[in-house]
C-alpha cells in the first residue's frame, strides 16, 4: 500500500509535468516542471515527505544506470562528431573544469563572507 501510493504520486506529478510541458511553449522539459511542482506540493504541505520518500529514494539510488542507454547512443553520433572531435573534447573538458571551480569558489566565497557577517552581528 505504501509503495503503491508513493509510486502513484510520483508518476502523477510527472504526468502533470508533461501536461504543463504540452500546454506551455517553453523549452523546459516535463521533468523540470514535475520537480518544481513536487517541491511546491511538499513545501505547501499538500504532500507529506513519507508519502513519497521511499520510492523517490529508490529511483534516485538507481539513477546513474538510467544514463547508460543514452551514453551508449554516442556510438551512433560518433561519425557526426568525428570531424570536430578534438576541439569538441578540449572545449567540453576545459569548460567543465572551469565552471566547476568557478561555481564552487564563488559559493564558498559568499558563504564564508555571510558567516563572518553573522558572527560580527
Amino acid at each position: 500500500m505504501k509503495y503503491l501510493q508513493q509510486f502513484l504520486i510520483i508518476m502523477l506529478v510527472t504526468c502533470i509535468g508533461e501536461i504543463i510541458r504540452y500546454l506551455l511553449p517553453l523549452p523546459i522539459p516535463a521533468s523540470i516542471y514535475g520537480l518544481v511542482l513536487m517541491f511546491i506540493l511538499l513545501y505547501a504541505g499538500v504532500l507529506k515527505l513519507d508519502q513519497v520518500k521511499s520510492a523517490a529514494q529508490f529511483l534516485i539510488a538507481i539513477m546513474p544506470v538510467m544514463f547508460i542507454p543514452a551514453a551508449v547512443g554516442l556510438l551512433d553520433s560518433f561519425s557526426a562528431l568525428q570531424p570536430i572531435l578534438i576541439p569538441a573534447l578540449i572545449t567540453v573538458i576545459v569548460c567543465n573544469v572551469v565552471v566547476m571551480v568557478v561555481t564552487g569558489k564563488t559559493a564558498e566565497f559568499i558563504i564564508s563572507k555571510d558567516k563572518k557577517k553573522g558572527e560580527n552581528a
Binding site: I10, T14, S31, G34, L35, F39, L42, A55, P69
Partner: peptide
C-alpha cells in the same frame, strides 16, 4: 545495432523523468 539494444535499453531511460521529479524530495529535506 544500437537500435536493437535500445529496444529494451530505453526502459532505463524512461525512468529518468520520474527520477528527476524525485530529486525534489532530497531538495525539500
Amino acid at each position: 545495432d544500437y537500435a536493437s539494444y535500445n529496444n529494451s535499453g530505453k526502459y532505463l531511460s524512461y525512468l529518468l523523468t520520474p527520477a528527476t521529479v524525485s530529486l525534489a524530495i532530497p531538495l525539500y529535506m
